Simulated assay, not measured.
Amino acid sequence: MTVSRTAPEDQDSDKTRAGIQSVEVGFALLEVLAQAEGPLMLRDLAASAGMSAAKAHRYLVSFQRLGLVVQDNASTRYELGPATLRLGLATLSRLDAVKMARERLPALMEKTGHTLAIAVWGNHGPTLVHWQESPLAVPVNLRLGDVMPMLSSATGRCFAAFIGNGVGADRARAMIEQEMLLARKLGRTDVPTTAAGVRELVEHTRAQGLGQGVNVLLPGLSGFCSPVFDADGQLSLGVVALGSSATLDTQPRGTVAQQLLSMTHQLSADLGWHRA
């Protein structure tokens, strides 16, 4: 009688192709959280992932241990945890545009003397993914993973003006509507509170080629954000320069803004973008 034997390497190959189904099933929960507007109750999270609440809870317990998910003790809602942020930032840092931008920041800092950052469009809006602080910088309460507001930050204004109709445009419009509503409630006069005001801000930002914020995000803090475009002319990321309003040259034709524009124009060209 002939016995058919499978070589060990063939068995390993079969296992690799088969995968681990429970990992794939559990990942559905992470995908739902990544696409959600905010934290979710267990029943809503489970329903969106197409599984029972009991089954979802078992996965969430393991995900909490790994730091992939966190649960608010007061509301009992679930949200993505710090481990997912680290994974996301690591992935983004490997994208060519982000890597190329990071490599050019030291030279830009030498020219400007101010803190620099890189922002990309994330699930919840323009998100800081790299931070390079100047030794002379004033302390700023911002950190990696922070989502910048669309109307009261140089970064948000840059994305509002240049995101076009690509991925994230609908989310950008929704964020702008929410921020206008909040600004009206607070009686703010330093950010647009009407659609006409937003159009004026966007047109002004496009005309000067970069977003600008003077004492609107935080008191005493000013900054610029210049767009970087890919070969298809889509907004790839924004390069940010921040500093004290007392020391940062806040003129759009000033040294900081022009050095920033020069760097981002060159980076866009290196990514294949050709200005019209």
Rank of each mutant, 00 (worst) to 15 (best):
Ser262Leu: 11
Val32Cys: 10
Leu87Asn: 10
Pro82Ile: 10
Gly197Thr: 06
Arg94Glu: 13
Asn165Gln: 14
Phe159Asp: 11
Asn123Thr: 07
Lys99Thr: 07
Leu218Ala: 14
Ala207Ile: 03
Leu218Asp: 14
Ala169Gly: 03
Gly50Phe: 07
Ala90Trp: 01
Ala119Leu: 01
Ser52Asp: 15
Pro139Phe: 05
Leu217Thr: 09
Thr193Arg: 08
Leu42Lys: 01
Met109Ser: 07
Thr155His: 02
Asp249Gly: 10
Leu271Trp: 02
Glu179Ala: 08
Thr155Val: 15
Ala53Cys: 03
Gly67Asn: 07
Val61Trp: 03
Ala154Gly: 08
Glu31His: 10
Val23Asn: 01
Ala257Arg: 08
Val214Asn: 10
Leu260Tyr: 10
Asp12Ile: 10
Ala160Ile: 08
Ala74Val: 09
Ala207Trp: 03
Trp273His: 15
Trp121Cys: 07
Leu151Val: 11
Gln21Asp: 12
Val140Ser: 07
Gln212Phe: 07
Ile176Pro: 05
Phe27Asp: 13
Thr84Trp: 03
His204Cys: 00
Ala53Gln: 15
Leu221Ala: 08
Gly243Val: 05
Val138Asn: 11
Ala101Ile: 02
Ala154Pro: 03
Arg77Asp: 09
Gly238Thr: 13
His274Ala: 14
Arg104Phe: 03
Thr76Lys: 15
Glu24Gly: 01
Ser48Met: 12
Val240Gly: 00
Tyr78Met: 06
Gly88Gln: 12
Arg94Asn: 11
Val138Cys: 09
Val129Tyr: 04
Asp190Ile: 04
Leu210Asp: 06
Pro192Ser: 07
Gln258Glu: 15
Leu30Asp: 04
Leu105Tyr: 07
Leu116Glu: 05
His130Ala: 13
Ala137Val: 01
Gln132Ala: 12
Val120Lys: 02
Glu24Tyr: 02
Gly50Met: 09
Ala54Met: 07
Ala56His: 03
Thr194Arg: 04
Thr91Phe: 12
Thr6Met: 12
Ser222Gly: 15
Pro252Ser: 13
Leu182Gln: 10
Pro106Cys: 03
Met1Glu: 11
Arg17His: 05
Ala47Met: 06
Ala54Ser: 15
Gly156Gln: 07
Val240Ala: 00
Phe63Arg: 01
Phe159Trp: 08
Gly145Thr: 04
Thr84Phe: 00
Arg86Phe: 01
Ala161Gln: 06
Pro82Trp: 00
Ser134Arg: 00
Ala169His: 09
Gly209Asn: 05
Ser52Cys: 01
Arg77Pro: 02
Arg188Asp: 02
Glu31Gln: 14
Val147Trp: 03
Ala231Pro: 00
